[in-house]
Simulated scan of single mutants.
Amino acid sequence: MFKGKKKWMLAAALSVVMSLSLVIPAFAAFWNLTGDTVVHDPTIIKVGTTYHVFSTGQGIQHLTSSNGTSWSRTNQVFASPLSWWKTYVPNQATNDLWAPDIEYYNGKYWLYYSISSFGSNTSAIGLASATNINGPWTDNGLVIRTTSSNNYNAIDPHLFIDPSGNPWLSFGSFWSGLKLTRLDKNTMKPTGSLTSIASRSGGIEAPTIAYRQGYYYLFASIDSCCQGVNSTYKMVVGRSTSITGPYVDQNGVSMMNGGGTIIDAGNVRWKGPGHQDVYNNNIIIRHAYDADDNGTPKLLINDLNWPNGWPSY
């Protein structure tokens, strides 16, 4: 029922998503990856000639690649848990961090991440920053939290910088859906109210926002992850001329009313693709469960194309 990203996946993988609209065909280049590609909820950035992927796992997992195809694991971000995490999320598994998002803004790398426990919205989003992508990382503390009295969930953060240079944070998982808030440019923490940007009775999470040629695009994941080859995760998208919405799919259905054009529902080998990240509008990454490897979640990367103003790969 609720998001199950985590303990099952970490134990299996790191010990080594109503009615929807049109499905867009896949045709862009699929990157053939090698090396250590075991990830869940990946986010990507390129620094110089090196690609960096951060993902769910102990202390936030960190993979690097000099060419984008051959990957290796390096030191995790947090070697040990911070004391304040369990103040807000008492049931968090020790140093178990979910769904990070990495972006560069105003001379620093900003790494947002989730603190939670399975099936609960007693959750928090934390923030770390660094001037070097490899650290050391500064703890910037709590960004936003939720408790069982809230009707949304403070996980799955995504930092987006709008064309005017203003930072925004989208987040959310299940309950009443995806939220958006403006951030203070100095603290990189919320200022002002929350705006609802997507909702779906069957669950929606993991927002990613991109901007291209006058449109804001909201990518999200729907249905269920974290069940190996039985995962039903799917990736959807809608667009709007305003960052606060309304976001509609290719059939004009609002994402506040369960809309969303499916862009990836998986295939025979790669089951339950989701928790996508878009980089420079020309790369899209996500995890999917490898049916050829007992459902292990792995990193997938594609070139991203925009035929007729909609993303496709």
Rank of each mutant, 00 (worst) to 15 (best):
K6R: 14
A12Y: 09
A13V: 05
S15K: 15
S15E: 13
V17M: 07
M18Y: 13
S19F: 09
L20F: 14
L22W: 12
L33T: 09
D36P: 10
D36F: 12
T56Q: 03
G57M: 01
Q58C: 08
Q61D: 05
S70T: 15
V77Y: 02
F78D: 04
N95W: 08
N106V: 10
Y109T: 02
S114Q: 03
T122H: 12
S129V: 03
I133A: 11
P136Q: 12
V143G: 03
I144P: 00
I144C: 03
Y152L: 07
P157R: 03
L159C: 06
D162G: 05
G165L: 11
W168F: 10
L169A: 03
L169P: 01
S170K: 02
S170Q: 08
S173W: 08
G177I: 08
T181F: 01
K185P: 04
M188C: 09
S199D: 06
G203K: 08
T208L: 05
R212T: 08
D223Y: 04
C225V: 05
C226A: 11
G228W: 00
N230T: 06
T232L: 07
K234F: 01
M235D: 08
V237P: 00
R239F: 10
T241H: 11
G245T: 07
G259N: 05
W270N: 14
N280R: 15
N282V: 09
H287Q: 09
G295H: 06
T296V: 13
T296N: 00
K298T: 01
K298D: 00
L300T: 06
D303G: 09
P311G: 06
S312F: 01
